[in-house]
Amino acid sequence: MGSEKDKFTNRVLMGQIGAAHGIQGQVRIKSHTDDPLALKNYSPLTTNRPGLEITIKKARLNKSVIVATLEGVTDRNTAETLNGVKLYVSRDQLPDTEDEEEFYQTDLIGLDVQLEDGTKYGTITAIQNHGAGDVLEVRPLRGPSELYPFTKRIIPTINIADGFVTFVPPTEIEVDDNEAFED
């Protein structure tokens, strides 16, 4: 398949284990799949803990989370040690997207970032989400990485087949020092 490094850089985050549920080792999982219960179909899942793989034996939907029984986890204490573990699947295990407007975020990593006139600006190095929406991390040709909201206005075109996105830099917000925070 490739090197060990490739194995871990070509992963897609599928969910994250949360709190223990009950006393028999079940856990809550926030799934990032369209059908939350489909997460079970990708077992075993790799994790962000070296050497730890997770196999979901049984799963049921409980409101917005999955309550799952994991292979080898039979008590609450063990389940609690898994809180925060991220669950990944190799990109090649996922089906191809059906139209050009759909993509996996991992497919954007490494794409060129071009200005509207075709000039290369940089490369997408990561996609982050800290709760307020997706943010692209872009490494410009010169200088440190920059963060931009992942919106249609800033990234109007995504062309995975040709390896680039079109980038419209946001305009700076200017504040008149005399107007800012006056009492």
Rank of each mutant, 00 (worst) to 15 (best):
V89T: 15
A68F: 01
H130W: 05
G22F: 09
V65G: 00
K5W: 10
V175N: 12
F103H: 07
N10F: 05
I66Q: 02
T166L: 13
L45K: 02
K120M: 12
V165K: 03
V27T: 09
L94E: 01
A79F: 08
A126R: 01
N41L: 05
T125C: 10
Y148S: 15
P156F: 15
R76V: 10
F167W: 06
E71H: 12
T78S: 15
D96Q: 05
D96A: 13
D6S: 09
I124E: 05
T74Q: 07
A59N: 01
N48V: 11
V135R: 12
E80I: 06
D6Q: 10
E172F: 13
I160M: 01
M1E: 13
Q16Y: 02
K57N: 15
H32F: 15
E137D: 06
P144G: 13
I56K: 07
E146V: 06
K40E: 08
L37C: 02
G25T: 06
I173F: 14
V85G: 09
E53R: 08
D75I: 08
A161H: 10
V27F: 03
N77A: 13
G118A: 04
K63R: 06
D35M: 04
D34W: 08
V12L: 05
D162T: 00
T106K: 11
R153L: 05
